[in-house]
C-alpha cells in the first residue's frame, strides 16, 4: 500500500496526497511516542555508571563511598559546578519530586517535548517555503498548495502532504 502511493503518477490526486499527509502525521506521532517512552520510562533503568568521558576524567583518582575524591591526580579534580546546577531540572530530575522514577521520567518527557518544540519550531520557520516540489515534475498543483501553506498554520499540513513523492517524481 505504501509502495503504491510512492509510485503514484505525479498528477494523482488529492486522495493519494491525503493519505501521504496522514502517514507523515502518524509517523511523527509514532516517533514522538517512542521517544517519550524511552525518555519517560526506559531512562529510569539506564546504567548509573559514569560514562566513557566521565570515567576517563576520574582515572587516576580514588573515591570514597560518597563519590568524593580522596587522592591521586585526575581531570575530575578540576571539574567545577555547572552554572545552572541549581536549576529545577538539573541532572535530569525535577526538584521537589522524591520518587526517582517519577522525577527522571517527567524530566525526560519534558526534555523530549521541549527539544521537539524548539528543534521542530526553528526548522519549520527556517524551511524553504513552497519549494519542496520544485525539483519534481509536479508543477502546477503543488505550487498552488505551497502558496496556500505559506499564509497560515492551517495550511502547513497541506504542504506536507504534497511532499512524499519527489524522489520518485524525478526518476519516473
Amino acid at each position: 500500500m505504501s509502495a503504491d502511493d510512492r509510485n503514484a503518477p505525479a498528477g494523482r490526486t488529492a486522495k493519494a496526497h491525503g493519505t501521504a499527509r496522514t502517514r507523515l502525521g502518524w509517523f511523527l506521532a509514532g516517533g514522538l511516542l517512542v521517544a517519550l517512552l524511552l525518555a519517560g520510562v526506559v531512562s529510569s533503568f539506564a546504567s548509573g555508571s559514569p560514562d566513557g568521558l566521565d570515567a576517563t576524567a576520574r582515572e587516576g583518582c580514588t573515591f570514597n563511598a560518597d563519590d568524593e575524591i580522596t587522592g591521586g591526580t585526575c581531570m575530575a579534580q578540576q571539574e567545577q559546578d555547572h552554572q545552572l546546577a541549581d536549576s529545577p531540572l538539573a541532572d535530569y530530575g525535577i526538584k521537589g519530586i522524591d520518587n526517582e522514577y517519577v522525577s527522571t521520567g517527567l524530566a525526560g518527557v519534558l526534555g523530549v517535548l521541549v527539544t521537539f518544540a524548539i528543534g521542530g519550531g526553528v526548522f519549520w520557520l527556517a524551511r524553504r517555503r513552497g519549494t519542496t516540489d520544485a525539483t519534481t515534475g509536479d508543477g502546477g498543483a503543488t505550487v498552488g498548495a505551497g502558496a496556500g501553506a505559506g499564509t497560515g498554520t492551517g495550511g502547513n499540513d497541506q504542504a506536507i502532504r504534497d511532499t512524499p513523492a519527489p524522489g520518485t517524481g524525478s526518476t519516473a
Binding site: L24, L28, G120, F123, W124, A126, R127, R128, R129, T131, T132, G146, A149, N156, A159, I160, D162, T163, P164
Partner: peptide, 8 residues
C-alpha cells in the same frame, strides 16, 4: 529544509 524534512 523543506516541508517534509523540517518536522522530521
Amino acid at each position: 529544509l523543506d516541508d517534509r524534512l523540517a518536522p522530521m
